[in-house]
Nucleic acid binder design. Sequence first.
DNA 1: GCCGTTTTCGGCCCGACTGTTTTCAGTCG
Length: 569
Amino acid sequence: MKNRDLSRILDEMGQMLELRGANPFKVNAYYRASRIIGELKEDIETVAAEDRLRSISGIGVGMAQRISEYLETGRVDEYETLKGEIAPGLVEMLAIPGMGPRTVALVHRELGIETLPALEEAARVGKLRTLPGMGEKKEAVILRGLEVLSRREGRVPLGLVLPRIDAMIEDLEGTRLGKRFAAAGSVRRCRETVGDIDILASSTKPPQLVQAFVQMPWVERVLAAGDTKGSVLVEGALQVDLRVVEARSYGAALQYFTGSKAHNIRLRDIAKTAGLKVNEYGVFRGETRIGGRTEAEVYRLLGLPLVPPELREDRGEIEAARDDALPDLVEVGDLRGDLHVHTRWSDGSGSVAEMAEAARRRGYRYLAVTDHSRSLRVAGGLSETALEEQLDEIEKVNGRMRGFRVLSGAEVEIMADGRLDYPDSLLERLDVVVAALHSVGRGRDEAQVTARVIQALENPHVNILAHPTGRLLGSREPYPVNLEKVFEVARDRGIAVEINAQPDRLDLDDLGCRRARDLGVPLVVSSDAHAPEQLGFADLGVSVARRGWLAKGDILNTLTVGRLMKALH
DNA sequence: GCCGTTTTCGGCCCGACTGTTTTCAGTCG
């Protein structure tokens, strides 16, 4: 897949053109094309080979030519030319909060600054303030920006920030200066990682609420504090923005600040065509406000049904909404069980009974206990004998529970040769066999890893493929594996692919879900819980499924246990 | 650079905040 490479090249071209002061709309066309290709479900090479590049909205003559050039020659001439003319340090400077293309061009042109250290030095000795339009404060902003940049860890997994957001909102509610509060932005869209946190509030005293916000004990630094908006950094250099509006604008503001930017641009375009204007204060015809109290009203005035936040990425949801063809997305309450959890038999912290009881409290009707197999020693993998003993315990627990079933299972290692870590004679006694790859040897290429996974899927006892790419957010790239081929085998053999809901996995991801669904692969949402309270991770998995346009019918663990077993076997 | 059942040319989302300003440019989301 060259999608990522191309996406990066076009993004860099956009940045370099921006530094050159190119037409902003042209610059935006590059950013847009970069995003579209980065999110493309298909292999760009396939699309190009079938001469379908131009059918992608946002890819015109120029972009198609550059894409073809890259696929044919491995390089884009214009990109190489730009790189030869623009110092790489200038592109890096664009990432500094407070530094935009104009400022970067200015310091380069007037002072010959081309690197981050040179920029820092010039700011420290007070050289920047000599430039037109710059002063002492701007120097401080840049020094601060440099520091933030060096501290910033990048995007944080959604699952890790959600509890912190809840706590922050609780503190804001405690001030009694606002009525309604909600997280907006990528948090509300449930993106797998978030770069900052947007909180929206309705209030009759906006400036007071902003002041209270920037004085919260968890605020490390105040970036901005106006009448209706405040920006702060909290621990870990995470930025939190608060926007405050009147109650009558709450829906419009929630819509606006939920984004995504690309989705909103499309909406405004529709509004404009209809002779309306949409902003964070409402929907307007001329000067007259015609709505904005609720989000549904905003969409309705544009002739659209309410688009679920998880879909607002300009990935076809606008068209689907227009055609009244939005998917009926799966909901957390649709799950009837969990098919991948661990107990203290391996590396979990709860007993079989404790996990089952926690599952029942969540409203589930079944739970598959899938401890690690013998080879995964670091995780306390079960020997054959231990697994047989566990089967006895599961039977006992089942004997005590009414209206709930504990399914026997195992998360079985896929060995280097593609065989599974237990003999078939043992696997066939289990209700649920989850096949998993935990490490691929150094230097394995895509063909090798793909063959290994497919070999495992050929085993007649496998029901589910766990965390299919092995990626760990922020720490491990996906294995080199051809998902397309894996999906085809899974579909043909009726094997479900897992959406692993561990906050740092979320594997499959949203785009993978959508591709799997298109190909007809059954899916499951699994918490991979290692403790009773971790069953709740499944909520995150449902968010991923929703972002992947999945309906209840696409997810097997929304079925009753009887139907589930039929579907799995 | 992209796009078009009003357009193949002339548009392209829109407002808050800051800093350096005498009315606005740059940045951000």
